[in-house]
């Protein structure tokens, strides 16, 4: 009896939270398919007038394809570089004992205490010196710099779980440390690498303020920066905006949905940010 009640209570609570979590996204999806003249009408289920017009407006009138491509390129390239540099660093920290290692690890961890926002102005000035203002390359570099410390620590956690005998065997078979890392350790650490990659991708995809400051030409805007122009004026066109929000969250939702198992173990293993 008590357990039955407990069960009902448990699923009621889980159900309420589910509703609260999903409703805002449902509401945005619903708004995005309402016909233009009905955007302000408060009905709760799509009617027969449901249309993809808002999405058409988004890609035709606002040319959102370009912004999506920019975001995709920057996030993918940055995340690949982050994994490359992170794997090298993580391997050193997981497999070598050397003096000063403790200090190096502390320096990596200390970066997590530094609020990213304080770097905005200095990074602009730095990019200005390098001639990389309004450049997607400059933005990518900054993202790599921001993500590398966390990725290194996260990957180190995964590499440490792999028995060192594995790469020692590879060394005996004629590999050097470098080829051992890429031929032997990397394949085994692949789930961890995937988790780190997704984490990095999501962070880059969602980043707004740095992109906002570094990029000023229409053609180089990333997706969040382009979204900002929607709210710049007094009048907000909620139909197109909700379609844009849906387009902007779909990539991360899909990736996360496919990989949530990895992410949960990965994030909690590799400490905590985001």
């Amino acid at each position: 009896m008590l357990t039955a009640l407990g069960k009902t209570g448990k699923f009621t609570v889980l159900g309420i939270w589910f509703f609260f979590t999903v409703f805002p996204i449902y509401w945005m999806a619903l708004t995005s398919v309402k016909p233009k003249r009905e955007v302000n009408d408060l009905y709760y289920f799509p009617n027969e007038g449901a249309t993809l017009d808002s999405y058409r407006v988004l890609f035709k009138d606002y040319a959102f394809g370009v912004f999506l491509r920019n975001s995709l390129v920057v996030s993918l390239v940055a995340s690949f570089i982050v994994i490359g540099l992170g794997l090298l660093g993580a391997y050193a920290l997981a497999r070598y004992e050397f003096s000063g290692k403790r200090q190096v690890m502390l320096a990596f961890l200390a970066t997590q205490m530094i609020p990213g926002l304080i770097s905005l102005a200095p990074l602009y000035l730095l990019m200005q010196k390098l001639g990389l203002i309004n450049s997607l390359i400059g933005l990518t570099l900054c993202y790599v710099g921001g993500m590398v410390p966390f990725a290194t620590m996260m990957l180190r956690g995964f590499i440490q779980r792999i028995p060192p005998e594995l790469d020692e065997a590879a060394l005996i078979d004629g590999c050097n440390r470098f080829t051992a890392l890429f031929r032997v350790v990397t394949p085994v650490a692949l789930p961890g690498i995937a988790a780190t990659f997704i984490f990095s991708f999501v962070q880059c995809w969602n980043e707004l303020f740095l992109a906002m400051i570094l990029i000023d030409s229409e053609g180089n805007k990333t997706f969040p920066v382009a979204m900002r122009s929607f709210i710049g004026g007094y009048w907000i066109e909620w139909g197109a905006l909700s379609a844009a929000v849906m387009v902007g969250i779909i990539p991360t939702v899909i990736i996360f949905g496919l990989m949530s198992k990895f992410m949960i173990s990965g994030l909690s293993a590799g400490i905590v940010k985001g």
Binding site: I25, W27, M227, F256, G257
Partner: peptide, 20 residues
């Protein structure tokens, strides 16, 4: 998978959603 979704979403975009 579904209730963990907010973690993967942009705070700025979700700010716009909540504004609406």
């Amino acid at each position: 998978g579904l209730i963990f979704i907010p973690w993967a979403l942009s705070g700025f975009l979700m700010g716009l959603v909540w504004k609406w």
